[in-house]
Design a protein around this nucleic acid. Structure first.
Lengths: 333, 333
DNA sequence: CTGAAAGCGCTAACAC
DNA sequence: GTGTTAGCGCTTTCAG
């Protein structure tokens, strides 16, 4: 940073004005090919790099986007981040990471970064907006989660339909006593997946016994605990639809501990298809989300907004795929 | 961004100069407590936020650091990122993500971001420096990997000693036919872990049979392939030391496929202690790295450099812990 | 303690 | 086509 050559240095050496250099660098048509080449050569020779702060100040853009998640430590976000990153860099944008850890103050703080010029737009995956303030006109794309009534564009999957499909798979195998380990209801995503479970059961004419819906928090340990609770019932289930893979890992772990074979005694379906789920034992049947594509699409929508395009609060729904693997089988009876 | 209040607006309303407002906002001692309060109140009222581009241009700092990895999609980096992020934000720094995917052009590009003012410093976890150019005086901290002769500060673990400890664990259980699935030698980290394997074997007076060292690439699939190669030997091993957990998952997968029980027939030790390794079946014995602390420490060292402190190329070595779980047991014989 | 004024390095009118 | 000039919004001398 210290003593870096600036446009003025190039201008002097080239015997032209700073404006011409700026134009040449910007590949403007308003320059002779010859002067342009001279400037370019000089720039390379001096190892010139434009100062981004100066450029940002002048253009009022930062060429940076903010990707905000609840927990950077969650592997689920990885492929999404990768998709966002790839699409962003193709368009010349850098990606800043934001991590809220469910702290309202930090949620607000990241929104403020949009206003102080830190970033031009945001991909929001926390599922919530700061309580105070008017955030609706900001260049924000909601991904993964759903913020009802926000008027913001969304990129997501149909959690209800996907969950329903997963439960229908269990039903089609012959299961009738199916339990659900849900996420942290009443968060929308958890509610949707539970709703899919209920719809599938209802459509098959099956009732959900008392105690067959237990609430977890998406972490491995809570999968174990919920499973324990389910198998202390007098009439335990033969199949589990678990709202995410991590809790499914925990559930399988617990089942093994209490001596139940998966899928021999109990079938288990997860949700998300984390990349380790196929290496899991038994390989986990689960709902695959197109994570990388969610990231790419969300970024593409954001780029559209930043380019001054679509103001409409479109909702893009991407398809899920049920990955049938080794953790599901027909019931014993 | 549009029509945001600026310092000038506050100055006018407060009836002071912009300089005074700037000072008040910076909590300078050169302002009366009273004027300061007036400015602060006004700032809150107008919902003022300083423009970062302007500030960065003037101060010649971006208050941003760059964290560069080979592959953002690798879960291994998660806790490190989390540690970096936490320490960075405490100090008022934002974290930009860089993803090289082993592309030399991108590696150079991220270094250039240091020079164009995009970031003030960098935490480098790719294990390599761009070939051309003089990067040694830049505020860069190498984490996780080792770049010999770079003259840069490092934050890492002792891979040789850790690997050695893992193999000694297998030896102490009674194993003598121990094989090693290595990472992509000759990358330093892979070489070190293999070196630890060799030292432990040598010290125990054990020889390494031909074909007992196979080279993988750190991915699940290569664990499977390497394992297949090992168990097509006429005299296969009774224990495996695998250079990372992902390949260990693949190896266990393959062992199961060919009908070998883990740890009954074959013991397996991994390296990294990914957070799913304890939910794996069998729970994986592995070397735990203090990932979050690596991130925090690397960022702390970088902050020290940015504060104009230590120029010395210190190397900080953090401790590893062997997590003995269910994938290792004494050999059958 | 406060104000006036000078830029940080760049882009974009506006002239020629 | 090219040069001149005026800022972008902020911090920081330098006077007072």
């Amino acid at each position: 940073m210290r003593d870096r050559p600036k446009i003025k240095d190039i201008a002097e050496k080239a015997g032209v004005s700073v404006a011409t250099v700026s134009r040449a660098l910007a590949a403007s048509t308003l320059v002779t090919a010859e002067t342009r080449q001279r400037v370019l050569d000089l720039a390379r020779e001096l190892d010139y790099r434009p100062n981004v702060s100066a450029r940002n100040l002048r253009t009022r853009r930062s060429m940076t986007v903010l990707m905000v998640v609840r927990d950077v430590g969650n592997p689920f976000y990885l492929d999404i981040l990768k998709g966002v990153e790839a699409t962003a860099r193709e368009a010349g944008y850098a990606v800043l990471m934001g991590n809220t850890e469910n702290d309202p103050a930090r949620e607000t703080e990241y929104f403020n970064m949009l206003r102080d010029g830190h970033a031009d737009g945001m991909i929001l995956m926390t599922g919530k907006l700061p309580s105070a303030g008017d955030w609706n006109h900001l260049p924000v794309v909601v991904a993964l989660e759903m913020i009802e009534g926000s008027g913001l564009p969304h990129v997501q999957v149909d959690n209800v339909a996907a969950a329903r499909g997963a439960v229908e798979h269990l039903i089609s195998l012959g299961h009738r006593r199916i339990a659900h380990i849900s996420g942290p209801v009443p968060e929308p995503m958890s509610v949707y997946r539970r709703e899919g479970f209920r719809l599938a059961m209802r459509d098959a004419g099956l009732t959900i016994p008392a105690g067959y819906e237990v609430r977890g928090d998406f972490l491995i340990e809570s999968g174990e605990e919920c499973c324990r609770s389910l198998f202390s019932l007098s009439d335990p289930p033969t199949a589990l639809f678990v709202a995410n893979d991590e809790m499914a890992y925990g559930a399988v772990h617990e089942l093994r501990r209490i001596g139940r074979d998966v899928p021999g005694d109990v079938s288990v379906v997860g949700f998300d298809d984390l990349y380790l789920s196929k290496a899991f034992y038994p390989p986990l049947t689960t709902v695959g989300q197109p994570r990388s594509e969610i990231g790419r699409t969300a970024m593409a929508v954001l780029l559209g907004i930043l380019a001054g395009g679509s103001e409409g609060a479109e909702t893009i729904v991407l398809p899920t795929v049920l990955k049938v693997r080794g953790s599901t089988a027909p019931p014993l009876i």
